[in-house]
Design a protein around this nucleic acid. Structure first.
Lengths: 235, 235
DNA sequence: CGGTTACTTGAGTTCCGTCAACCGAAGTGG
DNA sequence: CCACTTCGGTTGACGGAACTCAAGTAACCG
């Protein structure tokens, strides 16, 4: 059975920063409100500028949150996964979405209208609390992106920062290990979109990092051998 | 009498996105919790990395929210003013502050401990709602900064975007006017810190904008004559 | 008047984006 | 089965934009 199985009560997607970590009575409510929906890879859940009249809770799959310029340049702010809520900040303000959301693989989500979600928040203080934490996480992710782009003056620093942040999230070996070992399914193009760099520059830098022994690549597996050294490229 | 006069009930700082726009009973509570404090220009309210155990409500004055690199480079994420809450996102997550806050002029703030604030949120659903909106605004500001830095490839585009965003906030003529007229009290250094540019580049670009008739400068008064044209520099 | 802060301008240099060509793998369709 | 396309990655050459360094001006203030 997939993580969700369309049932919020038996769903195994939980965790400290997971929106769905709620007491049973709230989960009962969550189960019956909104609707379940699937998206294929490449499909958009929502677009920038649209009226923020609903929120999405990710049940399964990865979703790119992006901002685009009129010339077609794309910036990836964050990649949302199971347990994340999408569109919450804009919906809470009752304005328009400030970013777009695009499925990176086949995804399952729960769609809840703004008004329904507001009611849901009013009924349970835990929902309120989790919503606040969800938006806070969004806020931190955006802050981190901005800081990266503004403070690391070199392309190497920006890319290093993206790799390390990504690695710290998806680390597959123990936290205690000095090395970071993780899956890196993103294309150079996507890494570039996160770091504000061109695809070619990403290729060149990853090659350089590899040659210098800072990272190791084996297919989708990436190992950052010396996180501190990589981090110091920030300069 | 200054805007606040240390009394939340008679304070005139209100507005749609103001945290203190609350019903009377909540204001009564707000009046008695926390403590009132003053900061001189240049003093720090909080530093990056510190335990997020309190939040600040700005009563009066402007406060820079900044991120700094180890080399001393500074990035200004946002400038908070009366009615804004500082440190909320980090406090809600119970982690550390991700940014620093520095008074730009003599300021008055209300300091509330994290636990006291959480209680306050639990007592009034309106406080909850306003806290959510406050964090959402933070989130949007950070997103805007990130988008600016990532998507505008030229320095001119970044600076233009900072000027226009600043202008739209502090506009002193009617909203209907095509031109943006506003106070620009920031130094070139500060503008650079917001746009991710060096001080010299800001000087050169402002000169260029002025020579091209895109903006007009009279002391602290700035007029953006052709916002659309300036905005198109985004390229 | 000296000291500080902000702004201005010039010269030199480097970094990275762009353009272009090319490779290998995977998928598609007749 | 093979020609064709697409996608992701790689590498080289080039040029321009912006950073840095440096020197100098202007305004303000005790």
């Amino acid at each position: 059975m997939p993580p969700s199985g369309k049932n919020c009560l038996t769903c195994i997607v939980r965790g400290t920063d997971c929106f769905c970590s709620l007491p049973l009575n709230a989960l009962h409510d969550l189960q019956v409100i909104g609707s379940h929906k699937r998206f294929n890879a490449g499909e958009h859940l929502l677009y920038e500028g649209f009226n923020a009249d609903r929120v999405y809770i990710v049940c399964q799959g990865c979703i790119k949150l992006t901002a685009s310029s009129s010339e077609g340049k794309v910036f990836i702010i964050r990649i949302a996964g199971p347990g994340d809520v999408i569109g919450l900040a804009s919906a809470m303000q009752g304005t328009t979405y400030k970013i777009a959301a695009e499925a990176m693989e086949p995804c399952e989500v729960k769609v809840i209208s703004r008004s329904e979600f507001l009611d849901f928040m009013d009924r349970f203080r835990e929902v309120n609390r989790n919503a606040v934490v969800s938006i806070s996480l969004d806020c931190e992710a955006a802050t981190l992106s901005a800081r990266r782009l503004a403070l690391s003056s070199s392309a190497a620093g920006k890319l290093a920062s993206v790799l390390i942040d990504w690695g710290r999230m998806g680390q597959t070996n123990g936290i205690l290990s000095k090395e970071l070992h993780f899956r890196m399914p993103l294309t150079h193009e996507e890494l570039g979109s996160m770091a504000g760099l061109s695809r070619e520059t990403v290729t060149r830098l990853l090659g350089k990092f590899r040659r210098e022994g800072l990272i190791k690549l084996e297919g989708e597996q990436m190992t950052v051998r010396e996180p501190e050294k990589l981090e110091r490229l920030y300069h």
